[in-house]
Amino acid sequence: MANKITPFLWFNDNAEEAIQFYSSVFKNAKTYDMTRYGDGAPFPKGTLMSATFELEGQRFMALNAGPHFKFNEAVSFYVNCATQEEVDELWEKLTANGGEPGRCGWLKDRFGLSWQIVPTVLGELLADPDARKANNVMQAMLQMDKIEIQALKQALEK
């Protein structure tokens, strides 16, 4: 069953490449409903027009529609990670080949799409009932690009 709300991603002309890339990054990925441009279209015949794909249970739609709009940081995809290994793997894959690391777990992939790669434990540590400890975690996180769980735990105990 499709999601009630599905993020819709506008690409210039590389939606198919993006779908293949995201499907290689996330372990649970599927592609559905690929539609291709025909004769007389603004793209060469056979170019992907639109597709629905799924990453870790979240459906997305992708469209090749030209250079009119670009992604920006006002919208990002938050990925909740159970382990440091998962954070490391996703960070490495999503920043590869032209992606850009950002602060506090944020990054841009090579298509310009923003992601937040965040370990689940961050929320737990920030919610510590001791405000001083929670603030220590916040201050440590604010100094990081990729979030490091061990450093957060050490900050909690300072």
Rank of each mutant, 00 (worst) to 15 (best):
A82C: 08
W115N: 03
F53P: 07
P119S: 00
N14Q: 01
N135A: 09
Q154L: 07
M34S: 14
R132D: 14
M61R: 07
K153P: 08
D33Y: 10
C81Y: 01
W106M: 04
N97S: 14
E89M: 12
E73Q: 15
N3R: 12
D145C: 06
W10A: 12
G38H: 02
N64Q: 08
I117S: 08
L122N: 01
L55R: 00
Q20V: 14
K153N: 11
L94K: 05
I19V: 15
N3A: 15
K70A: 15
P67K: 11
E148R: 08
T47R: 12
G99D: 03
K4Y: 10
P7I: 12
P119I: 01
A82N: 12
K133S: 10
F111D: 04
A2G: 12
G123T: 08
E89Q: 14
D145G: 15
I117C: 03
D128E: 10
M144S: 06
M49D: 10
E124H: 06
L156R: 11
A74T: 15
F21M: 03
L9H: 04
P101C: 05
K146D: 11
K4C: 03
E157M: 14
S76K: 02
F60W: 05
D39W: 03
V118Y: 04
L94I: 02
V75H: 07
F43A: 09
G105I: 04
L122W: 00
A151E: 12
E56N: 14
A82K: 14
E86L: 12
R132Q: 14
E92H: 10
R59I: 11
T31Y: 00
D33V: 08
A131S: 11
V25N: 01
L107H: 10
E85W: 02
I117E: 02
Y22L: 11
F71Y: 04
W106T: 05
L122V: 13
P129Q: 08
I149M: 03
V137R: 00
P67H: 03
A134W: 09
K30Y: 12
T47P: 07
V87N: 00
E157C: 03
Q84C: 06
M138N: 11
A155Q: 05
L125H: 01
I149G: 12
K30L: 10
A29H: 03
I147H: 01
I19D: 09
W10M: 15
F8K: 02
E54P: 07
F21V: 07
Y37T: 06
G66P: 11
A62V: 14
K45E: 14
M49R: 13
Q143L: 15
G46A: 08
N135W: 00
E100T: 15
P129C: 07
L48S: 02
E85A: 15
K45R: 09
G99V: 05
A51K: 03
K133W: 00
W106Q: 00
N135R: 11
G102R: 04
I5V: 13
K70F: 14
F69Y: 13
